[in-house]
Protein backbone atom coordinates (compact mmCIF):
# COMPACT_ATOMS: atom_id res chain seq x y z
CA UNK A 1 0.00 0.00 0.00
CA UNK A 2 1.13 3.60 -0.44
CA UNK A 3 2.78 5.68 2.21
CA UNK A 4 -0.27 7.80 2.98
CA UNK A 5 -2.35 4.76 3.91
CA UNK A 6 0.37 3.37 6.18
CA UNK A 7 0.82 6.62 8.08
CA UNK A 8 -2.91 7.30 8.47
CA UNK A 9 -3.61 3.76 9.66
CA UNK A 10 -0.95 4.03 12.33
CA UNK A 11 -2.30 7.42 13.40
CA UNK A 12 -5.90 6.20 13.66
CA UNK A 13 -4.94 3.11 15.68
CA UNK A 14 -4.96 4.79 19.10
CA UNK A 15 -8.32 6.62 18.91
CA UNK A 16 -10.06 3.46 17.68
CA UNK A 17 -8.69 1.36 20.55
CA UNK A 18 -9.60 4.01 23.12
CA UNK A 19 -13.11 4.31 21.70
CA UNK A 20 -13.51 0.55 21.85
CA UNK A 21 -12.37 0.48 25.49
CA UNK A 22 -14.88 3.25 26.29
CA UNK A 23 -17.74 1.22 24.83
CA UNK A 24 -16.61 -1.91 26.73
CA UNK A 25 -16.20 -0.21 30.10
CA UNK A 26 -19.52 1.68 30.00
CA UNK A 27 -21.46 -1.45 29.09
CA UNK A 28 -23.75 -1.26 32.10
CA UNK A 29 -24.71 2.40 31.57
CA UNK A 30 -25.05 3.03 27.83
CA UNK A 31 -25.92 0.77 24.90
CA UNK A 32 -22.94 -1.37 24.00
CA UNK A 33 -21.10 -3.92 26.03
CA UNK A 34 -18.53 -6.61 25.55
CA UNK A 35 -19.35 -7.84 22.04
CA UNK A 36 -19.72 -4.46 20.39
CA UNK A 37 -16.52 -3.05 21.91
CA UNK A 38 -14.58 -6.19 21.02
CA UNK A 39 -15.53 -5.87 17.36
CA UNK A 40 -14.40 -2.22 17.36
CA UNK A 41 -10.97 -3.15 18.71
CA UNK A 42 -10.67 -5.99 16.19
CA UNK A 43 -11.38 -3.56 13.35
CA UNK A 44 -8.35 -1.51 14.42
CA UNK A 45 -6.10 -4.56 14.08
CA UNK A 46 -7.63 -5.48 10.72
CA UNK A 47 -6.92 -1.92 9.49
CA UNK A 48 -3.24 -2.29 10.35
CA UNK A 49 -3.11 -5.75 8.76
CA UNK A 50 -4.60 -4.57 5.49
CA UNK A 51 -2.28 -1.54 5.25
CA UNK A 52 0.91 -3.49 6.04
CA UNK A 53 0.35 -6.86 4.47
CA UNK A 54 3.67 -8.64 5.02
CA UNK A 55 5.85 -5.86 6.40
CA UNK A 56 4.76 -6.20 10.00
CA UNK A 57 5.79 -9.01 12.33
CA UNK A 58 2.65 -10.24 14.07
CA UNK A 59 2.71 -13.75 15.41
CA UNK A 60 -0.54 -15.60 15.85
CA UNK A 61 0.44 -16.97 19.25
CA UNK A 62 -0.15 -13.59 20.90
CA UNK A 63 -3.78 -13.52 19.78
CA UNK A 64 -4.32 -17.15 20.79
CA UNK A 65 -3.05 -16.35 24.27
CA UNK A 66 -5.38 -13.38 24.70
CA UNK A 67 -8.39 -15.26 23.41
CA UNK A 68 -7.86 -18.10 25.85
CA UNK A 69 -7.23 -15.60 28.65
CA UNK A 70 -10.59 -13.93 28.04
CA UNK A 71 -12.56 -17.16 28.13
CA UNK A 72 -10.73 -18.47 31.24
CA UNK A 73 -11.34 -15.15 33.04
CA UNK A 74 -15.06 -15.42 32.25
CA UNK A 75 -15.22 -18.98 33.61
CA UNK A 76 -13.33 -18.02 36.79
CA UNK A 77 -15.83 -15.21 37.39
CA UNK A 78 -18.62 -17.73 36.96
CA UNK A 79 -17.11 -20.17 39.45
CA UNK A 80 -16.53 -17.50 42.10
CA UNK A 81 -20.27 -17.19 42.60
CA UNK A 82 -20.46 -20.66 44.16
CA UNK A 83 -19.19 -19.25 47.46
CA UNK A 84 -22.25 -17.02 47.78
CA UNK A 85 -25.23 -18.79 46.29
CA UNK A 86 -24.94 -20.56 42.92
CA UNK A 87 -22.98 -20.80 39.67
CA UNK A 88 -22.90 -17.48 37.72
CA UNK A 89 -24.16 -15.50 40.72
CA UNK A 90 -23.65 -11.73 40.83
CA UNK A 91 -21.65 -11.76 44.06
CA UNK A 92 -20.49 -8.14 43.86
CA UNK A 93 -23.85 -6.37 43.45
CA UNK A 94 -25.43 -4.57 46.45
CA UNK A 95 -22.43 -5.41 48.62
CA UNK A 96 -20.09 -2.95 50.26
CA UNK A 97 -17.19 -4.10 48.15
CA UNK A 98 -15.54 -2.70 45.07
CA UNK A 99 -18.36 -2.52 42.52
CA UNK A 100 -21.36 -2.74 44.73
CA UNK A 101 -23.18 0.57 45.01
CA UNK A 102 -26.94 0.29 45.22
CA UNK A 103 -29.15 2.12 42.76
CA UNK A 104 -32.79 3.09 43.27
CA UNK A 105 -35.47 2.64 40.66
CA UNK A 106 -35.86 5.53 38.25
CA UNK A 107 -33.97 7.62 35.76
CA UNK A 108 -30.57 8.89 36.87
CA UNK A 109 -27.20 9.85 35.47
CA UNK A 110 -25.09 6.75 35.63
CA UNK A 111 -22.49 5.75 38.16
CA UNK A 112 -19.42 3.76 37.08
CA UNK A 113 -18.98 2.15 40.47
CA UNK A 114 -22.13 0.05 40.21
CA UNK A 115 -23.06 -3.09 38.38
CA UNK A 116 -21.52 -5.92 40.30
CA UNK A 117 -19.76 -8.50 38.18
CA UNK A 118 -21.15 -7.13 34.90
CA UNK A 119 -18.24 -4.77 33.97
CA UNK A 120 -15.70 -7.55 34.61
CA UNK A 121 -17.64 -9.94 32.39
CA UNK A 122 -17.80 -7.24 29.72
CA UNK A 123 -14.02 -6.90 29.84
CA UNK A 124 -13.46 -10.66 29.52
CA UNK A 125 -15.82 -11.01 26.57
CA UNK A 126 -14.34 -7.90 24.91
CA UNK A 127 -10.81 -9.31 25.06
CA UNK A 128 -11.97 -12.64 23.70
CA UNK A 129 -13.97 -11.29 20.76
CA UNK A 130 -11.23 -8.82 19.75
CA UNK A 131 -8.54 -11.51 19.74
CA UNK A 132 -10.76 -14.06 17.94
CA UNK A 133 -11.72 -11.78 15.05
CA UNK A 134 -8.16 -10.48 14.62
CA UNK A 135 -6.94 -14.08 14.49
CA UNK A 136 -9.41 -14.98 11.73
CA UNK A 137 -8.38 -11.92 9.69
CA UNK A 138 -4.68 -12.70 10.22
CA UNK A 139 -5.09 -16.27 8.95
CA UNK A 140 -7.05 -15.32 5.85
CA UNK A 141 -4.83 -12.37 4.86
CA UNK A 142 -1.52 -14.18 5.30
CA UNK A 143 -2.43 -17.43 3.62
CA UNK A 144 -0.08 -18.67 0.87
CA UNK A 145 -1.06 -21.20 -1.73
CA UNK A 146 1.12 -24.26 -1.32
CA UNK A 147 -0.52 -27.13 -3.17
CA UNK A 148 -1.62 -25.27 -6.24
CA UNK A 149 -0.95 -27.41 -9.32
CA UNK A 150 -0.88 -25.83 -12.74
CA UNK A 151 -2.30 -27.65 -15.71
CA UNK A 152 -0.52 -27.19 -18.98
Amino acid sequence: MSKIIKIVSLTALSPIIIFGLYIISHGHLTPGGGFQGGVIIASAFVLVLVAFKNDIKLSHKLFVFFESLGLVFFIILAFLGIFKNTFLYNFLANSSGILGRTIQFGANTGCLNSGGVIPLMNLAIGIEVAAALSLVALFIIRHKDQNKTKYD
Binding site: L88, N108, G115, G116
Partner: peptide, 24 residues
Protein backbone atom coordinates in the same frame (compact mmCIF):
# COMPACT_ATOMS: atom_id res chain seq x y z
CA UNK B 1 -33.19 -4.88 37.31
CA UNK B 2 -31.80 -1.76 38.95
CA UNK B 3 -32.27 -2.92 42.56
CA UNK B 4 -31.12 -6.49 42.10
CA UNK B 5 -28.16 -6.09 39.76
CA UNK B 6 -27.22 -2.44 40.12
CA UNK B 7 -26.89 -1.56 36.44
CA UNK B 8 -28.82 1.01 34.44
CA UNK B 9 -28.81 -1.06 31.25
CA UNK B 10 -31.59 -3.65 31.42
CA UNK B 11 -30.36 -5.54 28.34
CA UNK B 12 -26.85 -5.90 29.81
CA UNK B 13 -28.31 -7.18 33.09
CA UNK B 14 -30.36 -9.76 31.17
CA UNK B 15 -27.39 -10.89 29.06
CA UNK B 16 -24.85 -11.05 31.89
CA UNK B 17 -26.89 -11.72 35.03
CA UNK B 18 -30.33 -13.22 34.49
CA UNK B 19 -29.38 -15.33 31.45
CA UNK B 20 -25.62 -15.59 31.75
CA UNK B 21 -25.60 -19.27 30.78
CA UNK B 22 -26.48 -18.38 27.17
CA UNK B 23 -23.55 -15.95 27.10
CA UNK B 24 -21.22 -18.68 28.35
Amino acid sequence: AQEQTGSNNVVASIVFDYRALDTL
